[in-house]
């Protein structure tokens, strides 16, 4: 089993306009590796929603991507406020986003459900006041 390809991205929490840079780059790398376009699409959407969440809810963080022979792993790590009720946060339409975020096209409460829908595995570790780590896996074979 060869070593995975690892990429780490800093996600800037102060700049909504540049949010998505990490997802764009990951998508480019996955394309270069010649992965199936539907698999790339699913991974990119999940990563993008996660990246947006880190920016709008958690002052940014770090995205770690590891590409194995059989899967793509994405870890989104932040030191934001944490999620008090994960089950509630996971429900479609639930959002604490402010009005100004909705005006930017986000905050519909579909991010976490989308991330779950487009990945094969998703786990959320979170502690209020400490931060959140979302781990997602998309299988490639």
């Amino acid at each position: 089993m060869s070593e995975p390809i690892r990429i780490t991205y800093e996600v800037d929490g102060e700049d909504f306009m540049s949010a998505g840079t990490a997802s764009t780059d990951m998508k480019r790398v996955l394309r270069q590796l010649g992965l199936d376009s539907e698999i790339i699409r699913r991974a990119a959407i999940a990563m993008y929603e996660g990246e947006i969440n880190m920016v709008i809810h958690a002052h940014g963080g770090v995205a770690e991507v590891a590409i194995y022979e059989d899967r793509i792993e994405m870890n989104l790590i932040d030191h934001g406020p944490g999620i008090p009720d994960v089950e509630l946060a996971m429900s479609a339409g639930y959002s604490t986003a402010a009005e100004n975020i909705r005006e930017l096209g986000f905050g519909a409460g579909m991010g976490l459900p989308n991330m779950k829908k487009y990945t094969d595995e998703m786990t959320i570790e979170t502690e209020v006041g400490k931060g959140t780590t979302v781990r997602m896996v998309v299988r490639t074979v």
């Binding site: 909504f16 306009m17 540049s18 949010a19 998505g20 997802s23 764009t24 376009s37 699409r41 959407i45 993008y48 929603e49 947006i52 909705r102 930017l104 096209g105 986000f106 905050g107 519909a108 409460g109 579909m110 991010g111 459900p113 989308n114 829908k117």
Partner: peptide, 27 residues
């Protein structure tokens, strides 16, 4: 609402929007 687009749309579609920011392109 970009999250709605991200939830429902298939590839090779056309996106009509009144929203004007770079996240439209990223989406």
């Amino acid at each position: 609402m970009m999250s709605d687009v991200l939830a429902f749309v298939k590839e090779h579609s056309i996106l009509l929007t009144g929203l004007l920011n770079p996240q439209v392109v990223r989406t």
